[in-house]
């Protein structure tokens, strides 16, 4: 075991000290969701589904999903919803401003596990943001996978995220099913309904299908039930969970789901591994 003041100083820096990231692009996605592209000093080296701790010194820190696929450049993409103390301040930042980044943290998806299989993505609301980090590399190597399908749902047309990206994926030959819970009198040329509704009619071979889910807490049980009814095996369903986090390194206790820590053992889980964790899903 290592000891000594110098070691502890380095350890404290490595664990809790954010690295500077410069904002190079900001775009409004919806009235409350803003896209940020951040340039880091070194590559993030992340897996799809991982997250970073984003901070503004003097305001606070919060876990934020990484939205870009893995890559060798220094880029970090995020979509941040104006929801709390920190995100209000993040929304006021401008291109050229600096924010603090720690991470990446957590387990992620390994796209290689999906090679040769049909891949189904189900995204509800903000769930599309972390899923995009997996969809991007899968689409980039589409020939290594079977049929690729994305069901993306949100509350109403004004809340749809990554519209251009969804168009691009559609153009790339991915089946993209775009849904809203209701149009609320806004123009909308796609479907209306819950993300579970297309599942019974999807052309999918349950033996060959792997599914990745991310959305609000209430979504999972219904989607998993619908997939189960189609015969998709529970060990082929991956879920990306959200929890409160204060440290990202398995200590602060906030993200605990029964005996596991979401920040370390997750946030991506194989659904069959959650069977003994009643707190995982609603």
């Amino acid at each position: 075991m290592k000891t000594g003041t110098e070691y502890y100083h380095q350890l404290a820096r490595d664990t809790f000290m954010p690295q500077p990231g410069r904002i190079v692009e900001i775009a409004d996605m919806t009235a409350k969701d803003r896209y940020f592209r951040v340039e880091l000093e070194k590559p993030l080296g992340h897996h799809p589904g991982q997250f970073v701790m984003v901070s503004v010194m003097g305001v606070g820190e919060a876990p934020i999903s990484i939205s870009n696929g893995p890559g060798k450049d220094n880029t970090l993409e995020m979509v941040i919803r104006r929801i709390g103390r920190l995100t209000q301040v993040l929304h006021d930042l401008k291109v050229g401003d600096t924010l603090g980044i720690r991470g990446p943290y957590g387990s992620g998806f390994d796209p290689a596990n999906f090679y040769g299989r049909d891949v189904l993505f189900v995204a509800g609301g903000l769930g599309l943001v972390p899923l995009r980090s997996l969809i991007t590399p899968v689409v980039a190597e589409a020939n290594r996978f079977g049929k690729i399908t994305l069901i993306s749902g949100c509350r109403n047309p004004s809340e749809e995220l990554y519209r251009d990206q969804l168009d691009e994926w559609t153009d790339a030959g991915i089946e993209v099913i775009r849904l809203v819970d209701g149009t609320e009198n806004m123009p909308w040329k796609f479907g209306v309904g819950l993300v579970t509704e297309p599942i019974p009619k999807l052309k999918l071979d349950p033996e060959k299908t792997v599914a990745a889910l991310c959305g609000p807490p209430v979504m999972y049980k219904f989607v998993i039930t619908a997939l189960g009814a189609r015969g998709v095996s529970y060990d082929q369903i991956y879920v990306d969970l959200e929890r409160r986090m204060k440290c990202g390194v398995g200590k602060c206790g906030h993200c605990q789901i029964n005996k596991i820590y979401c920040c370390q053992d997750g946030p991506v889980f194989r659904f069959s591994d959650l069977a003994l964790l009643p707190e995982a899903l609603l």
């Binding site: 901070s55 003097g58 305001v59 606070g60 204060k246 200590k251």
Partner: peptide, 10 residues
Amino acid sequence: CYCFDVADDL
């Protein structure tokens, strides 16, 4: 018990 909260002060 060792759970903790983290907060900033300016």
